[in-house]
Design a binder for these strands. Structure first.
Length: 357
DNA sequence: TCTGGGGTCCTAGGACCC
DNA sequence: TCTGGGGTCCTAGGACCC
């Protein structure tokens, strides 16, 4: 039984946050721009969220400590993350993209997968459609994106990253293995730093190395993931493009400006975070059963402690009381705290809640 | 390099039930 | 009394994504 041939797009906005800021402030054009934590003259905590291509010339990258970015490029324009603005722009972009797809899946704030199998009859038509999408986004929002086209999500995702910014990369089904083979394994979805290291220790560096490796050995070393790795290395990915389902958890966490043993401050912060979480819970008409508290000590050692209640609730009181109890075990006079967080999960959605009462 | 914040999914061990 | 097996839920930790 042969599978139905699909044509999938992955659309990735180019340096999304800084591109929006540049559009809002034309005077930034041509300058290095960095969106992220406050650098505080090199003493700041936190990381770079996004940087534009001018900043990348100095070696700045997203995810990098902001203090390091400051050392590399003190003359850059540093801006805080304005999620509200970026979310608004994101919604407009996603609305444009959705029109073009049979099936649509948003991926983070600035990426999306589109299954366009019924909209185009071959890759040449697909490429024309992609150009049309890029043009519409540019004309309506003044932003560029990179698009990857392939027979599945995996290949489309890797293709969109292949040529940036303002790129368009087409990988036909018959070219997939040739395209993937020389790329480092890190390019595969779900292969992060740890998996990359483990693979390197086995002598596997490129996707081609992985494709030639004994799949039973991979399964032994990585479990279910091993089989997945082997299939991905051969460009096989049967996962569907589908809208995200219901939300599974809501959380807030805060890193203190300085590590602290002031437990009054820790409790106050936890309370504030709980209020924010509770706000989201009400807004989305949810009831939760599980509360989790997260603590990170000054040495970066991180712990979570959770409790599932015997009832479902949407009350701030229940959240606060449970969170405070859970936090107690971590408050020790000899250990300074770097971060505190709170999460609720195990939801019963409000709509169905009524029928359960 | 001195490491944010909001999420999802997986694993492994233990409790508990039939 | 010296010990099965399957299923489900809970908890803690970790890898990964943007």
């Amino acid at each position: 039984m042969s599978e139905k041939k699909r044509i999938i797009f992955h659309v990735d906005m180019d340096h999304f946050f800084t591109a929006i800021e540049e559009k809002k402030h034309p005077e930034f054009k041509g300058k290095p721009v960095i969106v992220g934590a406050d650098p505080k003259g090199g003493k700041g905590r936190g990381v770079v969220s996004t940087c534009n291509y001018e900043a990348r010339k100095f070696g700045v990258r997203s995810g990098m400590p902001i203090s390091r970015a400051w050392k590399l490029c003190p003359e850059a324009v540093y801006l805080p993350v304005n999620y509200e603005l970026y979310t608004k722009v994101s919604s407009k972009i996603m609305a444009i993209l959705r029109k073009y797809a049979d099936k649509f899946e948003q991926w983070g704030i600035d990426e999306a997968f589109l299954d366009v199998s019924s909209k185009v009859k071959d890759y040449a038509e697909a490429e024309r459609l992609a150009r049309q999408i890029k043009l519409e986004i540019y004309e309506r929002e003044g932003l560029t994106c990179s698009i990857g086209i392939g027979p599945n999500k995996l290949v489309a995702k890797i293709a969109s990253d292949f040529q940036k910014p303002d790129g368009l990369t087409v990988v036909k089904a018959e070219d997939v293995e040739k395209f993937l083979s020389p790329l480092p394994v890190r390019k595969l979805l779900w292969v992060g730093r740890k998996t990359e290291q483990k693979l390197r220790a086995m002598g596997i560096r490129t996707i081609g190395d992985l494709a030639r490796f004994d799949p039973t050995v991979l399964a032994e070393a990585f479990g279910v993931m091993g089989t997945q790795l082997y299939l991905m290395a051969h460009g096989i990915d049967r996962s569907e493009v589908e809208e995200r389902g219901e939300i599974k958890s809501i959380s807030r966490e805060r890193t203190f400006e300085e590590d602290t043993a002031d437990f009054e401050l820790v409790f106050k912060t936890l309370e504030k975070l709980a209020e924010e979480v509770h706000g989201d819970v009400l807004e989305q008409n949810l009831y939760f059963k599980t509360v989790t508290v997260k603590v990170r000590y000054e040495n970066f050692e991180t712990h979570t402690h959770s409790r599932t209640l015997s009832f479902m609730t949407n009350r701030l009181d229940d959240l606060n009381k449970t969170a405070k109890e859970l936090l107690q075990v971590y408050l020790r006079p000899d250990r300074k705290i770097r971060l505190v967080g709170v999460r609720v999960s195990n939801f019963v959605h409000g709509e169905r809640q009524k029928t359960l009462v």
